[in-house]
Nucleic acid binder design. Structure first.
Lengths: 125, 125
DNA sequence: TTATTTGCAAAAACTTTGCTGATAA
DNA sequence: TTATCAGCAAAGTTTTTGCAAATAA
C-alpha cells in the first residue's frame, strides 16, 4: 500500500470530520488543503480505504454513499428532516440484543444499529 | 390516494418478493404481469408507497435503493460476498439494547439493525 | 526503476422529471 | 368530470473508468 499525499490527506480530513460526509462534501474539504485534487481521486481513495478497513462506508437515506473515519464501535442517529447523522456511542453497560442468531446459517462478523427521528435543531422549527 | 392497476401490482409483487429488490429488479418482476409498465412508473410508485408508509426503503451496501414490502418489525442480514439480504425476525424474548438514548436531544421514532457476514451459500464456495 | 496512483474527461449507472394522453373515483 | 397517474424520453445526479503523465518506494 502506497501512501500518497492525496490518500493521506483524504484519510486525515475524514478522521477529523464528524459529519459523516459523502464523497463530494469531503472533496470540497480536501480541496481547501489540496486545491488540485480531483473528485475521481477522492472516490477511488474512499473505496480503497474502506476496502483496507481504515474507514467505514455508511448506508444512509440519500442517494450518496457516506463515510466515517471513526473506527471505534458506535452507532448512528439519522434525522429524517435534515439528514444529519449523529454518533451514538455504545453504552457502558453490556450490549444485550436478543435475536435468534441461530436461524442464520452463515457467520455474522458485524452489525450496526441506526436510529431514526427528528434532531433537536429540526424539532425547534 | 388513487389505486391504479400499476400501483396495486407493484405493491402486490413487492409484498410477495422476499429478496428486498431494487427498483430495476422489481421492474422486471412486474413486467411479467404487466409488460407495458415503465421503469419510471416503478420508481414513482415505490417512492409514493414508501412515503405513504406502505412499504419500507432499505439502505444497503450497493449503489441502489432497495425496498421491503414486509412491514412487520424485523431486521436484516446482508451477505458481504453476494449482497443477498435475509430477514432476521425479532426474538420472542424482550429486546434490550442498552444505549445512552438521553444523549440525543430529539425524538427517536424508529431504529433498525443490520447484521453483516457471509451467507451459507457463499461460505460453501 | 517500475508498479501504482493521479488528474482529466468521458462514460456508465441510477434516479428524477416534463409532457401528453389515459384513467380512477 | 377532473385531478391524478402512466408511458416515454430526456435530463439530472452520483459513481466509475480509460488513459497518459506523475510519483512513492
Amino acid at each position: 500500500m502506497r501512501m500518497t499525499k492525496q490518500r493521506q490527506t483524504i484519510l486525515d480530513v475524514l478522521k477529523m470530520d464528524k459529519t459523516h460526509p459523502d464523497a463530494e462534501s469531503l472533496y470540497y474539504e480536501v480541496r481547501k488543503l489540496m486545491p488540485n485534487i480531483s473528485l475521481g481521486t477522492v472516490y477511488r481513495n474512499l473505496d480503497f480505504l474502506a476496502d483496507q478497513g481504515l474507514i467505514k462506508r455508511l448506508h444512509v437515506s440519500g442517494r450518496q454513499m457516506h463515510f466515517d473515519g471513526d473506527m471505534d464501535d458506535h452507532h448512528h442517529f439519522e434525522c429524517r428532516k435534515c439528514g444529519k447523522i449523529i454518533d451514538v456511542p455504545l453504552s457502558e453497560e453490556p450490549q444485550t440484543l436478543s435475536l435468534p442468531f441461530d436461524h442464520i446459517n452463515g457467520r455474522i462478523d458485524g452489525f450496526s444499529v441506526s436510529f431514526y427521528g427528528v434532531c433537536e435543531d429540526c424539532s425547534e422549527n
